[in-house]
């Protein structure tokens, strides 16, 4: 609705909106900025009172240490070294890059499997009328109501029995449980919106159901595929509880587990801890900001139905 307003109220409105925007920005970005600022401070600077909101002598030392040890170019400081001395590299530093690699492998695999499993299933639910369609929908809905912590105990026992503890495979399988139902929901609501006639035209044109999917709907579903892929990636990248139970050594630990380990390690400085946090934050935040449009439309599609 456009109603012409006099100048003064319009300025007032803009000022109010500006103020509200600043408040929101401060609320949303403040904590993250503090995290970032802390990661760039030296061990000495970070314990100053009052805190330095902006680092006086910003340093990338923490990040350098993470990459150098992770790539085998430097060694963590030997045990017994005084952590407060400059240049101390905690032993967990060497685990961060491998953990990042683990997170990446898990997240990418889960994303690919989500699409491979979710797309055909969503197409069937969205476009084919079959007996049991309602039941399938309810089953998917129900999985979203079950708390993940309720799945932890049985999954742990099964994974242990199969001898799969401390493996990336166990994580990948468990993450399918928490991501696939949501993916199917988002994609199914997308397919449902597509005109039925397109499906029918393609079948008359000589496409089997599978070919309709690959030749007609997949090219059209790109935005939904991007959104679903992102959700699966972010959920896997960020997941903590299951990883905490299933992983034991650096061989399978993901980034959240290693970062959580650092938080309870009192020999590690706050600045290093924050640097590790920043490392874990950068990939998901970049993805979220770049693909904001896809994410918002995907979230609403999934939520309205779920």
């Amino acid at each position: 609705m456009i109603v012409p307003r006099p100048i003064a109220p319009r300025m007032l409105r803009l000022a109010a909106l500006g103020l509200a925007s600043l408040l929101l920005l401060a609320y949303v970005l403040g904590p993250v900025m503090w995290l970032l600022s802390s990661s760039l401070q030296t061990e000495r600077e970070i314990v100053s009172i009052p805190p330095h909101w902006i680092p006086e002598s910003p340093t990338l030392a923490n990040f350098k240490a993470i990459f150098a040890t992770g790539l085998g170019l430097a060694r963590p400081s030997p045990a017994g070294t005084d952590p407060s001395s400059g240049g101390f590299i905690p032993s967990v530093a060497a685990n961060l890059l491998p953990a990042m690699a683990n997170s990446f492998i898990v997240a990418v695999t889960v994303t690919i499997l989500n699409l491979l499993i979710g797309v055909p299933a969503a197409y069937a639910i969205g476009k084919i009328r079959f007996r049991g369609r309602g039941l399938t929908l309810y089953a998917i809905l129900a999985t979203r109501v079950i708390p993940d912590i309720a799945l932890v105990v049985p999954l742990f026992l099964v994974v242990r029995k199969l001898g799969m503890l401390d493996s990336l495979a166990s994580l990948i399988i468990a993450y399918l449980a928490i991501t696939v139902p949501f993916s199917v929901f988002v994609l199914a609501s997308f397919f449902e919106q597509m005109p039925d006639d397109l499906d029918r035209a393609a079948r008359v044109d000589g496409c089997s159901r599978l070919r309709v999917l690959t030749h007609v709907y997949l090219p059209l579903a790109r935005p939904a595929l991007v959104a679903v892929g992102l959700f699966a990636f972010l959920a896997s990248w960020n997941e903590f509880l299951l990883a905490l139970m299933f992983t034991q050594t650096a061989a399978s630990q993901t980034l959240p587990i290693v970062v959580a380990g650092i938080t309870s390690d009192f020999t590690v400085s706050f600045s290093f801890l924050n640097a590790a946090g920043v490392l874990a934050v950068v990939p998901p935040v970049l993805l979220a900001v770049i693909f904001e449009r896809y994410i918002v439309s995907g979230l609403t599609a999934g939520a309205v139905k779920g």
Binding site: L24, V28, L29, P31, V32, W34, L35, L234, W237, N238, F240, L255, P256, I257, V259, A260, I262, T263, L273, N274, G277, A280, V281, P284, V285, L287, A288, V289, E292, I295, V296
Partner: peptide, 15 residues
């Protein structure tokens, strides 16, 4: 606005 949503809960806790 999406930044807090995207941050891993571990980092949220740490932060």
């Amino acid at each position: 606005l999406l930044i807090p949503w995207a941050i891993p809960s571990v980092v949220n806790g740490l932060m």
